[in-house]
Amino acid sequence: MADIKLPANKVQELRDICAKFNHEKGELINVLHAAQGIFGYLPAEVQDIVAEELNVSVAHVYGVVTFYSFFTMTPKGKYPISICMGTACYVRGAEKVLDEFKRLLDLKVGETSANGDFSISCLRCVGACGLAPVVTVGEKVYGRVAPEDVKGIIAEYK
């Protein structure tokens, strides 16, 4: 089923990490965190390797990957945009901000733009409720975002 060719050096890095965790199946989540750090996402090919190294079924790995919202099977954009949909942000109008991002980038939540630049996702809470509504682009945090600000935020990355 291998459709994507993973770079050999990154595969080796992943195998080394599994070895560092003693191929312990209880460390699956820690291994997946590291794997997502290496590849940026967790395609089926990566899950195959993890399953093999930790001696568990691919179904088991897939079950865990799809259970937790932090893990993703689609690559994120170069500038991943996340809109916080926690209650505090929701009450302060996060939905309108999200709609504006969707409209301007012509993307749905969970999609990545064709040129690989932008992706949109929703976050549950980044714990910055005092700055609601909050948007993050990569590591950068934007607070008190209004729908009118969205155009300017996107322009910073174009």
């Binding site: 949909m85 926690g86 209650t87 505090a88 549950r124 809470c125 714990g127 910055a128 409720c129």
Partner: peptide, 10 residues
């Protein structure tokens, strides 16, 4: 701390 809108533990 998964409760959206709460950040006292953080």
């Amino acid at each position: 701390e998964g409760d959206p809108g709460a950040f006292m533990d953080r």
